[in-house]
Computed example of a mutant assay.
Amino acid sequence: MKRIFTTLAQKWPEYLLEILVITIGILGAFALNNWNENRKTRKQEIELLTNLRSDFETRVEEIKTIQEVRSNILQVIDTLYLRIENKEYENRNNELDSLLSYLYISYRFNNEFSSLDMLFSSGGIVNLSNSELKETLIKWPWLVAEMLEEQDRIENQMSLTTQVLSEYVLANNLYKNWAFSKIHGNLSDDYFPSNYKGLFTDRRFLDVLAHRKANLAFNVRDGKAIIELGNKIIKTIEQEISNQ
């Protein structure tokens, strides 16, 4: 035992150096492994962000197109209100047929978002390094859900719109004056003469216009908010990718 203590007393610097070397080696190996894992994780995050950016660019452009359609329909409704208020329904069949054809337009925003859904379902959003990006991504589904509520209401009202219009105006005539492309019907315009006076004094039609305008106005408001948020997300993603 005395020999052991003597040896330790004489060679403790050597033993200490060996311990330090081993410790440093182990810590270095852990550090290198963590660095490799972090680099791998970051690479995967950049790939995910790149896909997200592409998807958001597509969604924003889609909403912009829908917004243009919504704005056009709102303008049409205001024109119809003007015609109703001024009792301007004589000798305007072609114009009114074209205006009413807008009421048959139904649109649906594609809310399927595979890359974002995967980010939420996998819990990957928790691991995003950019907290601002996390916050904006979480807001996106909520804003879209609000917009889809008005969109669903408009679609649910389509049956009433068709029912009311069909009592006074032949669909054949509306399609012949379709606002976006000419669809030539097989019947002449006077086969069943349009009764715009009756339509414009039917309170159900006025309700159709009021509901459509209100829901469209909410849709346009929500659409603007979504476009603004989408552009912010795209910009944040671009900055994050550039900082890799």
Rank of each mutant, 00 (worst) to 15 (best):
Glu90Leu: 07
Leu160Gln: 13
Asn51Ser: 10
Glu61Tyr: 05
Asn110Leu: 09
Gly198Phe: 05
Arg42Cys: 04
Leu103Asn: 04
Asn231Leu: 00
Asn34Thr: 15
Leu99Phe: 08
Phe56Arg: 00
Lys2Val: 11
His184Tyr: 08
Ile84Trp: 04
Trp12Glu: 06
Glu149Leu: 01
Arg83Tyr: 11
Ile154Cys: 02
Thr79Asn: 06
Glu155Tyr: 07
Glu149Lys: 14
Trp12Met: 07
Arg108Ser: 11
Val169Pro: 01
Asn215Gln: 09
Leu80His: 06
Tyr175Ala: 13
Ile26Lys: 02
Met158Leu: 15
Lys197Phe: 08
Glu90Thr: 10
Gln151Phe: 03
Gly185Tyr: 11
Tyr107Thr: 10
Asn243Pro: 03
Ile125Phe: 05
Lys213Asn: 13
Lys43Phe: 07
Lys213Tyr: 05
Lys176Glu: 13
Ala171Leu: 05
Leu49Tyr: 05
Lys197Gly: 15
Ser242Asp: 11
Arg59Glu: 08
Phe180Gln: 14
Ala210Tyr: 12
Asn33Ile: 13
Trp178Leu: 01
Asp190Ala: 04
Asn127Lys: 12
Met1Val: 03
Ile66Pro: 00
Phe205Trp: 14
Trp35Gly: 05
Glu132Thr: 03
Pro141His: 14
Asn110Pro: 02
Leu52Thr: 05
Asn111Met: 10
Glu45Gly: 12
Ile234Gln: 02
Trp142Arg: 13
Leu119Ala: 04
Gln157Gly: 05
Lys40His: 02
Glu167Asp: 14
Leu96Trp: 00
